[in-house]
Design a protein around this nucleic acid. Sequence first.
DNA 1: GCAAGGTC
Length: 869
Amino acid sequence: MTTLILTEKPSVAADFSKALGVRTRRDGYYEGNGTLICWAVGHLVELFAPEDYSPSFKKWSLATLPILPEPFKYKPIKKSGKQLGVIKKLLKTPGLDRVIIATDAGREGEVIARTILLQAGFTDKGRIMRFWTSQALTPAVVRSTLEKLQPITDYDRLWRAGYYRQVADWMVGMNGTRALTVRLGDLYSVGRVQTAVLALLVQRRRERENFKPEPYVVVKVHFANEKGKWIGTWFKEKETRIVDLDAAQGLVARLTAEETPGVVLSAEKEKKSDPPPYLFSLTDLQQEANKRFGFPAKKTLNVAQGLYQDKKCLSYPRTDSRVLGTQNLDMVKKLVDKLAETAPALFKGVDHGRIALSNKRVFNDAKLTDHHALIPLKNLPPSATADEAKIYELVLRRFAAAFHPNCHYENTKIVTGFSSETFQTTGKIILSPGWREAWPIKAKKEDEAYIPPLVNGDAAHKEKVAAEKKETTPPAAYTDALILKEMTNPGRYVSEKAMKDLFRGEVGIGTQSTRAQILEILIQREYAKREGKTLAATDKGCYLVEMLQKTAVSRVLTSPEETARWEMSLNRIALGEGNNENFLATIKEFVQKSMDELKTVVMEGEAPVGRKRTGEVVGRCPACGGEVIEEYKNFKCACGFVLWKKIAGKNLTPNMVGHLLRTKKSGPYNGFISKKKKRFTASLILAQKEGSWQVTFDFDSNGKKGGGKKAAGEPAPWSSSPNASGSFSHSQEAASYVSQPERPTTLASKPAQNQKPLRGLNQTGPRPCPACGGSIIEGKRGFGCSNWPADKGGCRFVIWKTLFGRELTESQLTSLLSMKPTRPCNLTTSDGRTVKTRLRLTNTPQGWMVMADPDEQGIKHFEPVVCAH
DNA sequence: GCAAGGTC
């Protein structure tokens, strides 16, 4: 009697091991009591690449499209081949009479298991059972679910839906990418998810570029009576904006001249309450971390993964779900008690009556997907980084908030009549904060300030008339948070109302596990770029979408609605409602038509500069006299001579290179960008140095700043030069080399005569440099050691004048230099919150650092600041 | 040089 349990990932195998007391750890599995527990690492098997079917698909050409394999085949994923080997071997265990599939309870979990079984040649369905739950895998949940194993055939439909998803994405992606790449002359990838998301970014960029701000005026009157003061905003038929500027001016004049007092026409108060927010799904967490800390989606995922995997203080992060299972009630009760010990302030308002199955906002099996919501599992270990502390705190607060009472508040709406016009005043007073104690909101808006207790008929004396001139604003640029929201809820792109209802929250573009990756792919392929928090389509991305939208068939790839519809069809197949054959037939037909179209359609429009492989000759090679040809990313001669298209952030055109090859000098050109992100202007020089041809910048010819330091002729590290083996080597590290104009503006760069001893220090007696005993001198941005410059053995110690968003005071500096903690002081976090804590100077193995203490709940808010430069 | 889906 031997049972084999297969899980999706190591952490779940560990849960089984604990629950069943199967503790002997072998290489790649656990063993004991006649039970083997092994794990996958996500997908271990993938679809063949086109060239695996036939070598003729190795070359990308329109002639071989569409590629529609029949049948589709699978192969092991190379990097996890070892683990697949372990599972294959265990499946051959003599006397194995039961295989329990315990991969995640969802479509992809099913695919992971079935493709492994397929690859292992294990076909005896009679021996296979399905373990199916989305509850947190406490020992009790594992054991009770093992008593309710399902026949694997109950999940055949789900496997079919997963298989269709795989091959449909493959057919569309492989064929589409090849067709567009060949047609447009550079790598242009397309796919159900990435192209739909890119289209959203492109659409938003167009909306913003075409947006024309319209001026309007908002008129406000300040009223007062014996009860107090309030401000009324002019309105008519719910509209507060006055577009006709002359009319607004007339209105202001009339109101200013009006002598008769106004009267309160209506004063309504309404009591309302908001329930606590749902627990976090990954997307919710990513949106929140993006808004508060500016973290990109990928970064939040990475940090959460570390907290789950290494620190073990967060549950599995890649979840769609905002609820827990009903079987996890006891676990939650214990968890709340435990976490409350270290963060009492967050949990003191918890209503224990809400830690109950009647609380459907938390415990709801019907809303459970593959995994349960993201929750804390234990306290944050002290080894956590500042970023980890930030993410952990969000999850902890959200968890605490979920068990708090509702937030009760009162909305007030006053309408004041004055000079035959109407003015509105709205306000909101929090009566009892409830969950908002654990989940603070930002400062109130001005118009939600205190309003006097007015009643109908109260007099309203005019104090002041004010007109605010404003402009309409374009739709906001996308951030990670906003685009994730669109991907999660594409319902608004569905046209029919009936479909819209079905779509609400059920299907999205991509999945929790891949959304962050998709954004990174768009950036990596240069279809989109990050600028601070915002995410915008590049020219290249716009070009791709523009070309697709010129087509009649292939344009559906740019439609978020279409990808949502696919998902819907697949869900129906999984439920046994869809017409199986129709789905794939429809996709195949689409691919076929799309290929017919992309082979013949005329695509007008200019490709972004420098992004094509024309294969054209742009000039003669200076090394051998051969032809220099334009490739994807460079201009190249058969002898090995290479010129990169992109130098210091600027794309070289064939014309520029042609000129350079002919005359050995070209330019000056604007628009180079140094490593420190500064733009500069320079000419290019092609010259022979120590036997190789090299490109360098020449600053002299344009007479601008920074000239001379690194003049023409000096070897630059990005130029082509033969290495020891005779071939050409190159590097694109150009920017740092040419950033000479930027001198560091630190303390050290100041001329010596500007340095002066710090006054405050002299009054209390000089404090020596803690690092070397030298004296501390005030610089422009910090207090540094006089033993700088540090070219050989000097001291690099400095304490910056601005630390954690605040100006350092003299007494704080004195404390730090004396190696004492400062008094508690207010500091500003990167997301603008104020935290009161102490600073201290510490000598760590990584060097001297100024650190901010954790707060009362043990949560760290600040990264240490290094005191060397 | 290609998809999207997992996990680390």
